[in-house]
Amino acid sequence: MTNFLNIGKASKYIGRSPSYLRQLEQTGALIPDEYTDGGHRRYSLETLDQFLSSISTQGVCLTFLGIPDTDFPADYKNRLMPRLNQVLMGMGFMALEDFTPSIYEGGFYTLLPKLLTRVTAPDVTALAFANHQVLPAEAFSAVMETCLAHSVRVHFLSLQ
């Protein structure tokens, strides 16, 4: 048995899609060990294990975009999410969960208890905000206080 995996098997090994591995390569977070003559990526088990180990030591990133659905075009999130994931992967985090409620329709207050519960989970060590200025002040304070109480790092991302 060979110790090199093609991109399909490597993606199954780390539990993500092949396109995720391609994004990791673009950001320099996970580079294939070799390419076949046909240009196909091949990963060693050692490289994949090192990548998984580095992620587990750096933590999982819970993302909160805070994008009001009523103010942005329908495809805005579709264009923003790949950029957000690329930035997070470059920081060494996996984007685990995405909260993108519609603030003006009251969706944020419905999701706030779930968000606060998720932030306190032991595998969450960081929270990434994009467009946090659209959050209601009291809700933003509740999230920040919860992060502080549970030693969850907070990153404010500019994706312009």
Rank of each mutant, 00 (worst) to 15 (best):
Met144Ser: 09
Val87Ala: 15
Gln26Cys: 11
Asp33Trp: 06
Met94Lys: 08
Thr63Gln: 06
Gly92Asn: 12
Tyr20Asn: 15
Leu45Met: 06
Ser17Lys: 06
Gly66Thr: 04
Leu62Val: 11
Leu24Gln: 01
Tyr13Lys: 05
Gln86Thr: 13
Gly28Trp: 06
Asp69Ser: 01
Val134Asn: 00
Phe72Pro: 00
Phe108Leu: 10
Ser53Asn: 11
Cys61Phe: 07
Ala95Ser: 15
Thr125Leu: 03
Gly92Asp: 08
Ala126Ile: 05
Thr125Asp: 05
Ser54Ile: 05
Phe93Arg: 03
Ala95Phe: 07
Pro136Asp: 14
Gly59Met: 08
Val124Thr: 07
Thr146Asp: 03
Gly38Tyr: 10
Phe129Gln: 02
Asp75Thr: 01
His40Thr: 02
Arg153His: 07
Asp98Ser: 05
Arg153Leu: 13
Ile7Lys: 02
Ser19Asn: 13
Gly66Met: 08
Met94Gly: 04
Leu65Pro: 00
Leu80Arg: 00
Leu52His: 03
Leu127Ile: 04
Ser54Arg: 10
Ser19Gln: 13
Asp49Thr: 12
Ser53Lys: 12
Asn78Gly: 15
Asp37Met: 03
Glu145Ser: 04
Ile103His: 01
Met81Leu: 14
Ala121Thr: 05
Phe51Glu: 02
Ser44Phe: 06
Leu96Arg: 09
Gly106Met: 12
Pro136Val: 13
Arg79Phe: 02
Pro113Ile: 04
Ser56Asn: 11
Cys61Ala: 15
Lys9Ile: 10
Leu5Met: 15
Leu148Ile: 12
Thr100Arg: 01
His150Ala: 11
Tyr76Ala: 00
His155Gln: 13
